[in-house]
Write a protein that binds this DNA or RNA. Structure first.
Length: 527
DNA sequence: CTAGGGTTAG
């Protein structure tokens, strides 16, 4: 009888092994349905490992809700189950849940492993949680996990986010075993903190370099506003993948080099590397940046042809591109077609109306957004206030400006003051505009003063214009707006001698005219 | 069965 029972257990355990191997194979190849079937149809040889594998399967297929459900239903949970769940929350960027669950798991007495710390430390990059790195580091040392390469590499990243270059270096130096990932973390950390020389030196000294090392370097230059250096590095790369192309394209876009971004996007297509959502999204932003509806439409077609799933991020970029290229109707159509809308997509439509000078529509859209239960943020108010400015809606603008902090808890930033200065300025209320600048809790910047100068130009107001010009001169003595606006005012008043004098000064100082771009296609222009 | 380093809309 006992022998019989043992034989049964043996069969059962070997069939468990087989089932688990099958489940894992399905999970690895992204076949969640098949894994689920295997799990469901073999209840007798299901064990904790099978449950954990299914949990992992849900997470790898971005089914975090399902994973939570499964986690709750499990007959028992071990540290692997917890680690898997934590990794799931990290994957979707929910640092708060990672921290919460980690605390809960410790409270009920589950002993964390190296894997736990690796996951938690790498998850807390979000603002508000960085300070936990030091506490976690302490616990890591206490449990003697600090010699683990994974844990130490995560710590390097954590200290990078915390902005502590000394600690970052120390963790790296104390590692007994380093690999290419640890070196890459060091480079990224230094780059994030703006330590360019240290990063470059580390890159030169590292024993081996892979595509990630190169991409980190390129990305570092991009973040430090050195797009040309980034490109130089990009050109030297022995191989490139979607990541590297996307970093460089978005790098140009972030640094205002829209044409370069689009040219590189074209080279990428020629290279045969397939873009992903991020790449397309960056390309669309570049189109939006240089108001190129023509190329924007082509990118749109490219997205449809690629067959990529249209996620919220990509669709929002599309709405934004159409809005900024002046095709408000297409922007709204793309927006309406979105199965789920978020704050950013709503903002893009409001911004589209505002830029098109349809102030009333922008305000209507804002009301609609509130009805859908979306809370506005500071970007929403930038669009709203600029909509009021362009539509001459002074009272409405004042109302929104005063309500943003009172009703929505959003502190006005300098951008909002710039909008208000513009609003008053366009309406000819230059006294109010000047008063606002003097009373605001910021030092005026180029944008604010530029708005005031422009307003003085529109209304040919020499008195306020001189004040504005003087303030601007203090900030940036060769800003082109000073000279172009003053010369306009003098020109309007017929004081041509002053204009000639100003233009001479302008030329001597090397001041350039500001660049402008238009939605009108060059071929439609009458020369 | 679980883990580290590179991208992501205004």
């Amino acid at each position: 009888m006992i022998a019989h029972f043992n034989a049964f257990c043996c069969i059962s355990s070997s069939s468990s092994k087989f089932v688990n191997a099958m489940i894992n194979d399905h999970v690895r190849n992204g076949r969640l349905i098949d894994a689920w079937k295997m799990f469901d149809e073999n209840p007798h040889c299901r064990n904790l490992t099978s449950w954990n594998s299914m949990l992992n399967g849900c997470i790898k297929n971005d089914q975090i809700r399902l994973a939570c459900q499964l986690f709750n239903e499990m007959p028992e949970r071990d540290v692997v189950s917890w680690n898997t769940l934590l990794a799931g929350f990290r994957r979707i960027g929910d640092s708060e849940q990672v921290v919460r669950r980690f605390v809960r798991m410790e409270r009920i007495g589950v002993i964390p492993t190296e894997v736990t710390f690796t996951t938690v430390i790498s998850a807390i990059s979000n603002i508000g949680f960085e300070a936990l790195v030091q506490q976690l580091h302490g616990r890591v040392i206490l449990l003697a996990f600090n010699s683990n390469v994974f844990v130490a590499t995560a710590l390097i990243g954590g200290y990078g986010n915390l902005g502590d270059s000394i600690a970052l270096r120390r963790v790296f130096d104390e590692m007994s075993v380093k690999n290419v990932a640890s070196w890459n973390a060091l480079i990224s950390g230094y780059m994030k903190l703006g330590c360019m020389d240290e990063a470059r030196l580390a890159f030169e000294r590292m024993p081996e370099r892979n595509i990630v090392s190169w991409t980190s370097l390129v990305h570092g230059y991009v973040c430090n506003k050195m797009p040309d250096e980034a490109r130089c590095c990009f050109d030297k790369m022995p191989e490139r993948n979607v990541f590297s192309w996307t970093v460089m394209i978005s790098g140009y876009e972030k640094n205002g080099k829209f044409v370069e971004a689009l040219e590189l996007f074209l080279s990428m297509r020629e290279s045969g590397v397939c873009p992903n959502q991020s790449t397309f999204s960056s390309a669309l932003s570049a189109c939006a940046g240089c108001s190129s509806l023509f190329i924007g439409k082509q990118v749109h077609v490219g997205i449809l042809k690629s067959g990529l799933p249209l996620d919220v991020v990509l669709l929002s970029s599309l709405v934004d591109m159409y809005a900024k290229c002046g095709h408000v109707n297409a922007a709204i159509r793309a927006f309406e077609a979105m199965p789920e809308k978020n704050l950013v997509s709503w903002n893009s439509t409001i911004c589209g109306y505002a830029r098109h000078g349809i102030g009333v529509k922008a305000l209507e859209q804002f009301e609609r957004m509130k009805k859908h239960g979306i809370r506005p943020d500071y970007v929403t108010f930038v669009s709203l206030l600029s909509a009021c400015g362009h539509g001459g809606l002074v009272e409405e603008g004042e109302r929104y400006f005063s309500s943003m902090e009172r009703d929505f808890g959003i502190k006005p930033r300098i951008e909002h003051y710039a909008c208000m200065v513009d609003l008053y300025g366009r309406a000819g209320q230059l006294d109010k505009a000047e008063k606002l600048i003097r009373e605001m809790p910021f030092e005026p910047d180029v944008v604010v003063l530029g708005a005031l100068l422009a307003a003085c130009g529109i209304h040919s107001d020499l008195e306020h214009g001189l004040v504005a010009a003087e303030l601007m001169y203090k900030l940036e003595h060769d800003h082109p707006a000073i000279y172009s606006l003053l010369s306009k005012i003098y020109g309007d008043r017929g004081g041509w001698n002053e204009v000639i004098e100003l233009r001479k000064v302008m030329k001597e100082m090397g001041a350039k005219k500001q660049k402008g771009s238009s939605w009108i296609q060059p071929s439609f222009c009458v020369s």
